[in-house]
């Protein structure tokens, strides 16, 4: 079983603040992490390998420093890591990113399953995974909460629905995006950390993956960000302390008026 996991390095969004004057993100001092949902994708890839044999290849597009996240993936148990790294990839929206990742995947010789996190914690779009599946012309199942079974040519999974879940079969190769419920990511082992330190992280450029310059980076992006601003602050609320009787009456009043 050849498993490809796509990951993204993001700033830790739980720590990020915006500058109220310039309306821009204050990135200084904010550490970079593997996007939280991608941790579940890596873990699921490793679990599949442990169950069925094979290898896990982790793939990312990003600046040179994203190498750190790929090493982390190796410390967790991935076998190989590739970074798609080229100035010409910069400024990509989801379409250009998915094209670039798909070109990288095409260069990797064959695969059975591609796993992505549900969405990246910075852009929150949840679009790159499904878009990659189109460039590769393979089926896609988003919001997978469990892999029930993998056979030679088929995979059976649970896909989250608004009321519960669906049990779905798809033909391999296939791309899935996973939600948090799917597993509990492990911590790196000491042996894994040692291996990560020594591991070679392959770096592929635009030429390496035979990509069309017109389809990557800012040039290949049909969308443009016009403006960035801070979300409107919620008005200060009313805090009640003390007589429960009074509070409950007032709350019931509010709720009845809806």
């Amino acid at each position: 079983m050849k498993i490809i996991v796509c990951i993204k390095e993001v700033p830790d969004t739980t720590e990020i603040k915006t500058d109220p004057e310039t309306n821009t993100l204050i990135r200084a001092g904010v550490k970079s992490i593997i996007s939280p949902f991608d941790m579940y994708a890596i873990e699921e890839g490793i679990r599949l390998k442990e169950r069925l044999g094979g290898e896990v290849i982790v793939l990312s597009m990003g600046p040179a420093q994203a190498e750190k996240s790929l090493r982390e993936a190796i410390s967790l148990g991935a076998d190989e890591a590739i970074l798609l790294c080229d100035r010409k990839f910069g400024g990509a929206d989801t379409l250009a990113t998915s094209y670039t990742l798909a070109q990288g995947i095409k260069k990797i010789d064959g695969y059975d399953i591609i796993i992505c996190g549900k969405q990246a914690a910075d852009g929150d779009t949840a679009q790159v995974g499904p878009e990659v599946s189109v460039w590769l012309n393979i089926p896609q199942i988003a919001y997978v909460s469990k892999i029930e079974q993998v056979e030679q040519e088929r995979i059976k999974v649970r896909r989250m629905s608004e009321e519960g879940y669906e049990v779905i079969q798809a033909k391999l190769p296939c791309l899935i995006t996973v939600v948090k419920e799917i597993n509990e990511p492990r911590l790196p082992s000491l042996k894994g950390k040692m291996r990560a330190k020594k591991a070679e992280i392959k770096k592929w450029t635009l030429e390496d993956i035979n990509a069309d310059r017109e389809k990557t980076g800012l040039k290949g992006s049909p969308t443009q960000v016009k403006r960035i601003f801070s979300p409107p602050q919620r008005e200060k609320g009313k805090i009640f302390e003390g007589d429960a009787e009074e509070i409950v009456k007032e709350m019931a009043e509010v709720l009845r008026s809806i």
């Binding site: 969004t13 993100l25 929150d124 443009q224 601003f229 979300p231």
Partner: peptide
């Protein structure tokens, strides 16, 4: 919204 709701972005195609 992006960045977990920390920021808003206006986008055109």
């Amino acid at each position: 919204p992006a960045f977990g709701g920390n920021i808003m972005a206006t986008i055109v195609c």
